[in-house]
């Protein structure tokens, strides 16, 4: 446990950005608090008005939901809001060594605002504004809630260690990750930015329903080149407590859910890097 001078446990500060149609804020906050973070929920309108607010935090989370009803396209309107009002602030935030995480709708937002995956730094073939990847309609063309296995494909992200397998649920209609071209995909793969892939029970890549949406390369989550921005389609915050597992009545209650490791790694990272290395942000 890392403590401050007075012996108190250090609690990294996380901001969950919410807006019309944000849904998963309650359980995301619960997960973060459980692993030792302090969490505030801040409306995007307030953040746009007071951009300095970001300085209070070490991590930004864009949770699941249907921001603005997913009208036009999932996450698109919030993506534009962030892009046109807060892009530079968020880029600086990451440059300072801090973390951004987008879950489900939050992942869609990060991709559509161009913050993910940003292959090779800013040198996306289309630059920061352009989008070389997107999340589009599931092959099944419907919203589906089902549990999936995802495997950590690389060590690039601070949120997860390579080869970790998590069993967590997806719940989305637009989660199929696709790239503009095979080359673009190849670049993403080589840079280690494919963080999570859908696998079957045995840990092997497989088809539907193991890959619930038809994502190219079974991609379930990606990070930026720094490894500090994570976007993930499944919901780790929905498997924190053992009773959330769909088969706990068969397999028994585990100590804790698979999803918690992502949040714990994030909090540990913030404690280690942002405090130990004295990169503490202003109060």
């Amino acid at each position: 446990m890392i403590r401050d001078e007075t012996g108190n446990e250090l609690r990294p500060k996380v901001v969950i950005i919410r807006t019309a149609g944000t849904n998963c804020d309650y359980e995301t906050r619960y997960a973060l608090e459980k692993v030792g973070a302090t969490v505030d929920l801040v409306h995007i309108n307030q953040l746009v008005k007071e951009k300095d607010l970001l300085d209070l935090y070490q991590m930004v989370v864009l949770p699941g939901g249907f921001t603005y009803g997913d009208d036009v396209a999932a996450g698109k309107v919030l993506a534009n809001q962030l892009r046109y009002h807060l892009l530079n602030d968020l880029l600086r935030f990451v440059d300072e060594g801090k973390l951004i995480m987008g879950i489900c709708n939050g992942f869609q937002v990060l991709v559509k605002m161009g913050l993910l995956p940003r292959v090779n730094g800013f040198a996306d073939s289309e630059g920061i504004g352009g989008q070389a990847f997107t999340l589009t309609y599931n092959d099944s063309n419907k919203f589906e809630d089902r549990w999936v296995y995802v495997k950590a494909f690389s060590n690039k992200s601070v949120f997860i260690e390579k080869d970790t397998i998590l069993y967590i649920p997806v719940a989305h209609a637009e989660g199929k990750f696709i790239g503009k071209s095979e080359e673009e995909f190849e670049l993403l793969s080589q840079s280690g930015q494919i963080v999570f892939t859908y696998v079957d029970k045995e840990g092997n890549e497989s088809g539907y329903p193991w890959n619930p949406n038809g994502s190219i390369g079974n991609v379930a989550g990606v990070c930026d080149p720094t490894g500090r921005i994570l976007g993930i389609m499944p919901h780790p915050e929905r498997y924190i407590e053992p009773t959330q597992h769909p088969r706990w009545t068969r397999e028994g209650l585990k100590g804790e859910g698979d999803g918690i490791v992502i949040f714990r790694n994030a909090v540990d990272y913030m404690r280690e890097k942002l405090w130990k290395e004295k990169r503490v942000v202003k109060k």
Binding site: N23, E27, F143, Q244, P246
Partner: peptide, 14 residues
């Protein structure tokens, strides 16, 4: 399956 039966994180028996 088309209903999100787990949002809010409280599901125990699905």
């Amino acid at each position: 399956r088309q209903y999100d039966h787990e949002v809010q994180g409280g599901s125990v028996l699905k």
